[in-house]
């Protein structure tokens, strides 16, 4: 089994899958698709952790994989979908720049990350590609936050960044202690719930979930 995984470089494939789902975020127009992409991204992350756990035989990584699956793969998507439904109006993403340009810029970001992290002390561990991929996912998450108007897309961008961070930490340390993983996941769950409530409130107060309207708050 282990040989089989190594022979087909399953780890690299899953990592690339994570990167591709992040890049694909740029191409989707509907909020529902974005949430679905995030779900796929989280499942891939979870399965990656599980496989690495199997490869090196660490029990606490199984727990991390299970937790990731439950929170990021199930709870958060359900919650996000409910928010999207509550927003009612258009389910369009409304980006500032068109999809082609935004895909191009994501590509450039990935290239920059690969170029700048190809040498150095970090290139080690179970797969030398995982770190680059994780950093690229973080940047793409941030980029999504910048280019999307709606408050809910900000939350999804943030979640992508978090997945990227998780992956980066995981690739360097083979998973943090379980208690820290638990804390981070719980934090994120709370964070997203609060952000969701905010998004609904913003929608209610400004009769739009467009974050551009927030500039009038500046003194």
């Amino acid at each position: 089994m282990k040989n089989w995984i190594e022979a087909f470089s399953v780890i690299d494939f899953i990592s690339v899958g994570i990167l591709l789902t992040a890049v694909a975020m740029n191409a989707f127009r509907r909020l529902e698709s974005c949430v679905r992409t995030y779900t796929v991204n989280s499942w891939l992350l979870s399965s990656l952790i599980a496989i690495v756990a199997f490869m090196i035989g660490e029990t606490h990584l199984y727990i991390a994989a299970a937790l990731t699956l439950v929170t990021k793969g199930i709870l958060l998507p359900v919650f996000l979908r409910r928010i999207v439904k509550q927003m009612k109006v258009t389910h369009d993403v409304e980006p500032y720049i068109n999809n082609a340009l935004s895909l191009t810029i994501s590509g450039i970001l990935v290239a920059v990350v690969y170029a700048s992290l190809s040498v150095g002390i970090f290139v080690s561990g179970f797969s030398k590609n995982v770190l680059q991929i994780s950093i690229a996912v973080i940047l793409i998450g941030l980029f999504i936050m910048i280019t999307r108007r709606k408050a809910i897309t900000q939350v999804i961008g943030l979640l992508f960044m978090e997945n990227g961070l998780f992956l980066a930490g995981f690739s360097l340390t083979f998973g943090m202690p379980t208690i820290i993983e638990l804390g981070v996941l719980f934090d994120m769950l709370m964070g997203v719930i609060i952000l969701g409530i905010f998004a609904i409130q913003i929608k209610r107060v400004f009769t739009s979930s467009d974050l551009d309207k927030l500039t009038i708050l500046k003194g």
């Binding site: 500032y96 940047l139 974050l211 927030l214 500039t215």
Partner: peptide, 18 residues
């Protein structure tokens, strides 16, 4: 006052740091 611009500053900083 634009949230996106602030996030943009962060992205630019990160990329430049990279």
């Amino acid at each position: 006052g634009s949230l996106h611009l602030y996030l943009g500053y962060i992205l630019i900083t990160l990329v430049l740091l990279l």
